[in-house]
């Protein structure tokens, strides 16, 4: 009965749990950020590739 009264020290598990939670969430946010950044880079390159082709087939860079 006496042992029931003392609260066991399980703070190690608690810290591990919260650490993992924050790490996983941070990794996910980072992955969204990185994917967005890479796609934006792709997008700008693709748009540059797309533009010169527009006026005929001339290779002259940026007439307008």
């Amino acid at each position: 009965m006496f042992f029931q009264e003392t609260t066991p020290d399980t703070s190690g598990y608690m810290i591990a749990g919260y650490a993992i939670t924050f790490i996983v969430m941070a990794l996910y946010v980072a992955s969204i950020y990185l994917r967005t950044r890479n796609l934006n880079q792709d997008k700008t390159t693709l748009e540059e590739m797309d533009k010169p082709d527009q006026p005929g087939q001339t290779n002259a860079p940026r007439q307008r």
């Binding site: 029931q4 609260t7 399980t10 703070s11 608690m14 939670t21």
Partner: peptide, 20 residues
């Protein structure tokens, strides 16, 4: 979860994991 809520008596601090 970590500070405000009281520590659960039987399980101790690990119970705080429950909120998240």
């Amino acid at each position: 979860a970590l500070v405000f809520a009281p520590t659960e008596r039987v399980m101790g601090d690990v119970q705080r994991v429950f909120y998240f």
